[in-house]
Design a protein around this nucleic acid. Structure first.
Length: 852
RNA sequence: GCCGGUGUGGCGGAAUUGGUAGACGCAGCAGACUCAAAAUCUGCCAAGGGCAACCUUGUGUCGGUUCGAGUCCGACCUCCGGCACCA
């Protein structure tokens, strides 16, 4: 065995062995339980970043662990290859999007391979290739046939200078990113997918996903936003015609407190009133300015203007003024809301601003109402009763809602209704680098599907747009919009199962592999990607294509990778960011840290810590890391530095620490096998006390690592446990026969349980320990119950909850024995002296708390 | 603004079901080896007090429940993710 640990040759040899044996090619095998392990596929931005390394290492550890547990593992990889950056690169560098994308894929694939991931590359899919996106088109046409896809208008960000639609990220402070022009909202025709048809099912099925993080399920449930309430109308007359203004409310108990109604700027009533009111027309125009982004809309100042129109309160017959409010969304409900200033915080501030009356109709015992400042209880529904509400006085929330809903129903003007926050999914994008929507617009036939979904995103010229109608043959225009890239990622996990089938989108193999047993990806996808995938899978189920309905059985949302940010802000001009490798941190004797640029020795400013990104220039290139330390060090650092769900802070010293541990492991095996490979057959009955202690720790570590990886899905504590064992093993200098057998056993177990995390070095060390086969083909080790047995345990002694001592008792000691031993302890006696012992709490195996 | 999360030594983090706060690692300090440095190895390492045994305080802030709270409850603060055209 070589004395020096040389990652480059060790990793090349291990990867060559796996490739040569096609070790990770997955085939359907009914005789073993399957395990589909999937990490979210990357956008081919050009270079791998640390977030990818983290994501794919987590997946790889689980895939390799499950393989050792006897599962038939599939771990595929592909490319989420359509999207805006390719268009931006094309404009910046004059490179066609296709070439830019495929070059990036080739480069990133090499980088991924250097990490030693247990991936079945035979199943690779690329969403921008026609072999993939033709099935998007085929599925879209099936949805159109079934009414799941349909056409209506939608609001987009419009740049009036460039005459183009902008993505939300291209709008900065309400202005176009290139032109700086004020962005406008514009309505254009778009295709939508009827995800709302599945709202109830998508919500209800969240309960069938115990393997998902609670917070993700909560976020999805809130996003779908089912609310039970009352829909009712305010009657009014317009041009001699009787109409009603319909609103939805979850607070029907406050209807008697309505003092105004507010409608969206796009509402028909607003438009009508604006015909004779130029100030109102101007206000409505102002509301239509700005972006279509909900986050910005929600933060802008709440403004309103009266329409001069009145509607009638359906229960009191009072006239109610109608206002236009910039905070009322046309897309939610019917674009109109009732205003109850006394019991809705937003309405309260609106009423205070515009001097509208505030009428209390809910009271709560022990709380006084005052209309000069909002108090938290005004919005409560618990322990409240109606007041100033005529016949409804004294009713509590649920009774009031039921009674008022019944009355509105009797009047024929309202009823209970379930309302959803979820909106249909608009998939049209006015972009070049995306999956073409396979339709032709014919003046005679309307929207006509392109047979077999043909269409080429590489030719949006007149030759592309002008075509013959597939139905009647007359001149027609081809649809030029492409699909949202979320379409591509909504079913790629199904395609992996049938990647080589050119005849159909998915075949029977999808039913073998799905659902994905473990899905791993960023928390930023908690809502949209995961919800769209759940929806799309159900649509495919309803088309009879697959039997699965929930695509992802278990979900792990990994945290971001962060690094320090350093910059200089010149008196004039832009902030310049420096990569952490370009600066030097100095600590003065007082402990004050200051940072200097290595290049010129002058100070730079520390900007805290943030996600590794190009814009902050704080990324670390995985390539350099692998070249310098090897993939195993990169993987070990990623798994050790933080638990997978938390953000991870980059640390060069932490990488050094991981490298140091790997070298120690190598050295430990080197020194052991230098004396000759021993048999790991430990004669348990003949061990000394010290030997028994070490052996117990070996098997305790086995139990802990199995539980950490297999059940808890945390790897940093698993690595820490192995480090502790290594520390003990280094202190264990016993070279007797049983001692060497024990060391052989310990090293073998360490190599086995570390092999999912650092597979290359373990591949080499397993052979050095005297085994002819490959470590990936060895079963995960089982702990030995007899090694775990303990004869005595330490019990912590507390007096009044404070730690005062410890005793060692036989493991089999009864509660009474422990109690007696504790009360006889000198430290306990000292602390209870002169006090009456009121209570003694004994937790067997843990502690005794004496309350005095 | 709304929804979801987060906060523990100098730093990353551990404490799994309410039961010993700070495992493991990094940095630092001291020592060994070395002509020297690097590497490696050994020891120390929350704060305050004490010669010491040991004591007091301490998990973002304030309050509560409990024999016992980092963990549960209420209010607040901070930072992070999402908000439907970044992926």
């Amino acid at each position: 065995m070589q004395e020096r640990y040389e990652p480059a040759s060790i990793e090349a040899a291990a990867q060559a062995w796996w490739d040569g044996h096609r070790a990770f090619a997955a085939t359907e095998d009914q005789s073993r339980p399957k395990y589909y392990c999937l990490s979210m596929f990357p956008y081919p931005s050009g270079r791998l970043h640390m977030g990818h390394v983290r994501n794919y290492t987590i997946g790889d550890v689980l895939a390799r662990f499950m393989r050792m547990q006897g599962r038939n593992v599939l771990q595929p990889m592909g490319w989420d290859a359509f999207g805006l950056p390719a268009e931006n690169a094309a404009m910046a560098n004059g490179v066609p999007p296709a070439r830019w994308t495929y070059d990036n894929i080739a480069y990133m694939k090499r980088q991924l391979k250097s990490l030693g991931l247990a991936i079945d590359w035979d199943r690779e899919v690329t969403t921008c290739s026609p072999e993939y996106y033709r099935w998007n088109q085929w599925l879209f046409l099936r949805m159109l046939e079934r009414g799941v896809a349909y056409k209506k208008t939608g609001v987009v960000n419009w740049d009036p200078v460039d005459q183009t639609v902008l993505a939300n990220e291209q709008v900065i402070d309400g202005k176009g990113w290139r032109t700086g022009a004020l962005v406008e909202k514009r309505e254009i025709p778009m295709y939508y997918l009827r995800i709302t048809r599945y709202a109830d099912e998508l919500l209800g099925a969240l309960d069938t996903l115990p393997g998902w993080p609670e917070r993700v399920r909560t976020m999805q449930a809130n996003w779908i936003g089912k609310s039970a309430g009352v829909r009712f109308g305010f009657p009014y007359e317009l041009g001699g015609e009787r109409r009603v203004l319909n609103v939805f409310t979850t607070r029907a108990d406050t209807i008697m407190g309505v003092t105004f109604c507010a409608v969206a700027a796009e509402h028909a009533l607003a438009a009508h009133a604006a015909q004779t009111d130029s100030a109102l027309a101007a206000f409505i125009e102002e509301c239509k300015q700005g972006t279509a982004m909900e986050a910005e809309l929600a933060q802008q100042e709440k403004k309103g203007m009266p329409t001069g129109l009145y509607v009638t309160h359906p229960l009191t017959q009072q006239p109610i003024p109608v206002w236009v409010g910039n905070y009322v969304l046309m897309g939610y409900g019917e674009g109109a809301v009732m205003g109850v200033p006394a019991h809705d915080e937003r309405d309260f501030h609106f009423a205070r601003t515009y001097g509208l009356p505030i009428r209390q109709v809910i009271q709560k015992a022990g709380h006084a109402f005052a209309d000069d400042a909002w108090q938290a209880w005004y919005g409560d529904v618990e322990d409240t009763t109606c007041v100033h509400s005529g016949k409804y006085d004294g009713l509590e929330y649920a009774q009031a809602v039921a009674t008022i809903a019944a009355d509105l129903k009797t009047l024929g003007i309202g009823d209970t209704q379930v309302q959803w926050r979820l909106r249909d999914w608009g998939i049209s994008r006015q972009r070049y680098w995306g999956c073409p929507i396979p339709l032709v617009h014919c003046p005679a036939c309307g929207d006509v599907p392109v047979p077999d979904g043909s269409g080429n995103p590489l030719g949006k010229t007149a030759a592309f747009v002008e075509c013959a109608c597939p139905k009647c043959g007359q001149p027609a225009r081809r649809e030029t919009d492409t699909m949202d890239t979320f379409v591509d990622s909504s079913w790629y996990f199904l395609r992996f199962a049938s990647a080589d089938n050119a005849q159909v989108a998915v075949d029977e193999r999808a039913n073998y592999w799905l659902p994905v047993d473990q899905y791993i990806g960023g928390i930023e996808h908690a809502i949209l990607h995961l919800l769209y995938s759940r929806f799309w899978t159900r649509v495919m189920r309803d088309l009879g294509l697959v039997r699965v309905e929930e695509p992802f059985q278990n979900l792990l949302t990994q945290g971001m990778v962060l690094n320090d940010i350093y910059f200089r802000k010149p008196a004039s001009g832009r902030i310049v960011y420096f990569n952490p490798t370009e600066v030097e941190v100095r600590t003065d004797p007082a402990g004050q840290q200051s940072v200097f640029l290595k290049a010129d020795g002058a100070p730079v400013e520390a900007g805290g810590i943030g996600t590794m990104s190009k814009s902050k220039n704080n990324g670390v290139d995985p390539q350099l890391l692998v070249e310098q330390f090897g993939a195993d060090t990169a993987r070990l650092f990623m798994m050790f530095a933080a638990p997978p769900e938390q953000s991870l802070e980059w640390s060069d010293q932490g990488v050094q620490g991981a490298y140091r541990f790997i070298r120690r492991l190598w050295k430990s095996v080197y020194e052991h096998v230098g004396l000759g490979v021993a048999s790991s057959d430990v004669q348990a009955g003949e061990l000394t006390g010290e030997q028994r202690d070490l052996r117990r720790q070996v098997h305790q570590t086995l139990v802990k690592v199995t539980d950490d990886i297999g059940r808890r899905r945390v790897f940093n504590t698993a690595v820490a446990a192995v480090m502790e064992l290594m520390n003990s093993l280094d202190k264990f200098t016993d070279v007797t026969g049983p001692g060497r057998a024990l060391r052989q056993e310990a090293l073998e177990k360490i190599v086995l349980i570390l092999s999912p995390i650092v597979p290359h070095i373990c591949h080499a060390l397993w052979q050095e320990l005297g085994h002819p086969g490959a470590v990936i083909d060895v079963s995960w080790p089982e702990p030995d119950a007899s090694a775990l047995a303990q004869d005595s345990v330490e019990i912590v002694l507390q007096v009044n909850g404070k730690l005062r001592g410890r005793i060692v008792v036989p493991a089999a000691a009864s509660e009474a024995d422990i109690r007696e031993a504790a009360l006889a302890d000198a430290a306990v006696l000292r602390w209870v002296e002169g006090k009456l012992i009121r209570k003694v709490i004994v937790v067997p195996g843990k502690l005794v708390n004496v309350v005095a």
